[in-house]
Amino acid sequence: MNIKNTKNFYGLLLSLIALSLTACTTTEIDEFRQGATHISSEERIVILGRRQNNNYETEGSFVQCVANTVSSGQDGIEVMAEQEFLDAMFPFFEPRTAPMRTSHLQELMTLEVAAQKIEEFGIEYIIWLDGFTERSEGGGSMSCVIGPGGGGCFGFGTWTDDSNFEAEVWDLDTLESVGSISTDSNGQSYMPAIVIPIPLIARVEANACNGLGNQLKQFIKGS
């Protein structure tokens, strides 16, 4: 075996080890349908994060992740960018002014300027994402030392991540809620350290995003 092949082999081996060293995650998805849904190829949706809560706000990165999942693949649905929608509909979807219920949406749609803009964008559904990821139950201890001859860590750390998100789907034709999808994803991450810390991260939020995004896609397509 020449040097180049040996390097490739170890690189592949390390990649495989890194891939296999992810901690387990459990994801539960619940769907509640109140009405029929359908979307044509000319229509699109917008996914917005709820940001009116005092103690948390739905992360923009999570909203973007769900939007990417919904719009990806051959069966993807076109999703309007959140910021583009918020700017175009300003000031009606800001944290303090956004419609909280469909009755507020019905009120908003009586304004000609707002209704015209929605029509212009070809938006069929608004999806409200609300939730957050909480880190808890941290444990273990780790100490690291550094000296003239080098350094290293020794110990063990662990923590739990719990993601809870809900997506509510509003139909802009009927101005009613057509259903909701909720996801509860949790997993424990580990960080053993024998000289080098080896993080075994549970991809909790990423799993919640993928699960929710794919379920939303199916929900909107009516399948």
Partner: peptide
């Protein structure tokens, strides 16, 4: 500032 602009407009 967006919050102010939104409240002021509405």
């Amino acid at each position: 500032m967006r919050d102010l602009a939104a409240s002021f407009t509405i």
